[in-house]
């Protein structure tokens, strides 16, 4: 008797338990949900609303003057700085993020080998994470400490300018002149790659070696596919880091516009700027996601192609079958109508 009850009980109560667990889960997550609504979604909507207004703070209170798309035309047509900065930012991010990621991967692979003093090198390469803050960077850059001393920046820049469009050449030149800063931004990425590399099963490499694979092949066929999700993670991290970094002049511009005393600027104007900026950051993230995010590798792709072919075959088989049935029906109908016999494969003709 007792045993039966015990067996039956969970089946009946499972739904309740699940419900209770779900409730507990919501309870645990609740503070964050409130936070997201209060500090993200609500302000997001509000700044979307602000975008269409010219907001003036007067002694009598805040005045909202609807201007329609006036803020945007102001930004794009009358303020030459913002569009220019956006283009530079776009180029800079698109150029710098791959540099950061590839550099981090290189360092991580070097540190992953059999190396003495690995801890010491890790210490050095992680050090910048502690230091990078806007003002410190500004100071170092303005004193020229961010340039690799042996590099002749001017010649690099002029060489680039001769065969690339100007804005692109400028951002690449910028990359060279602030090389150390860009290397400095890859501290966290190096550690992420390193811990991903250390989790790859050494048996894989052994098997590849036995089959005659060189280290070069091992890198392309084992290491890279395994850490591919980490590449995406690091690329996105780098984009976000660069976009919220105070070296980025766009965000200081937004802040300046927010508190500027002039008639046409203000909260509404700054909101419009911020929204456009957010859209561009999201687009860049999306770009990297599309480039690196496909989970399939070569084998998966082959499997998928094979499956697609199988499906196609099955479909044609079905089509033929269906056509056969249809034809059979037609023939039957015709036979009934005209009442003459055709050979249907059964019985005598």
């Amino acid at each position: 008797m007792k045993n039966e009850k015990k067996v039956k009980k969970p089946k009946v109560k499972l739904g309740k338990l699940e419900k209770r667990e779900a409730r507990a889960g919501w309870l645990f997550v609740l503070p964050w949900v409130i936070g997201v609504v209060a500090f993200m979604l609500y302000p997001l909507c509000q700044s979307f609303y602000y975008m269409w207004f010219n907001i003036r703070i007067t002694p009598l209170g805040t005045k909202y003057i609807p201007v329609g798309t006036g803020n945007f035309t102001q930004i794009w047509l009358e303020n030459p700085e913002f569009p220019q900065q956006i283009v530079t930012y776009l180029w800079q991010t698109v150029v710098e993020v791959p540099v950061i990621v590839v550099f981090a991967l290189m360092i991580a692979i070097m540190l992953n080998g059999k190396i003495k003093c690995r801890g010491f090198f890790r210490l050095i390469f992680f050090l910048p994470v502690i230091i990078v803050s806007g003002p410190v960077m500004n100071m170092l850059v303005s004193e020229g400490a961010a340039t690799i001393p042996a590099m002749n920046i001017q010649s690099v820049k002029s060489a680039l300018d001769s065969f690339l469009p100007h804005s692109m050449a400028e951002s690449i030149g910028e990359l060279f002149s602030n090389m150390i800063m860009i290397l400095w931004y890859s501290g966290v990425q190096i550690l992420i790659f390193l811990s991903a590399l250390q989790k790859i099963d050494p048996a894989l490499y052994e098997a590849a070696k036995i089959d005659g694979g060189s280290q070069w092949e091992c890198f392309w066929k084992i290491t890279l596919p395994t850490i591919k999700p980490m590449i995406l993670l690091n690329a996105i991290y780098s984009v976000i880091f660069l976009s919220s970094n105070e070296q980025n002049s766009l965000i200081t511009m937004i802040k300046a516009a927010m508190f500027s005393g002039t008639k046409e600027k203000g909260y509404g104007y700054a909101s419009a700027m911020a929204w456009m900026y957010a859209v561009i950051v999201t687009l860049i993230v999306l770009l990297f996601f599309l480039l690196l995010g496909s989970k399939r590798d070569i084998y998966d792709r082959q499997v998928k192609r094979h499956k697609r072919e199988m499906k196609k075959e099955a479909r044609t088989v079905k089509k033929i079958e269906r056509r056969g049935i249809r034809n059979a029906k037609k023939i039957q109908k015709a036979r009934q109508k005209r009442n003459y016999r055709t050979y249907d494969g059964s019985g005598d003709y």
């Binding site: 997550v29 500090f39 302000p43 997001l44 700044s47 996105i236 976009s243 900026y277 957010a278 993230v285």
Partner: peptide, 22 residues
């Protein structure tokens, strides 16, 4: 909610900064 979490990371703080400041 997890999607929202990642979105909140990607979204630059400048967008929400102005209403939050107000």
């Amino acid at each position: 909610l997890l999607g929202l979490l990642i979105f909140s990371y990607i979204l630059p703080s400048q967008v929400t900064m102005i209403p939050t400041y107000v």
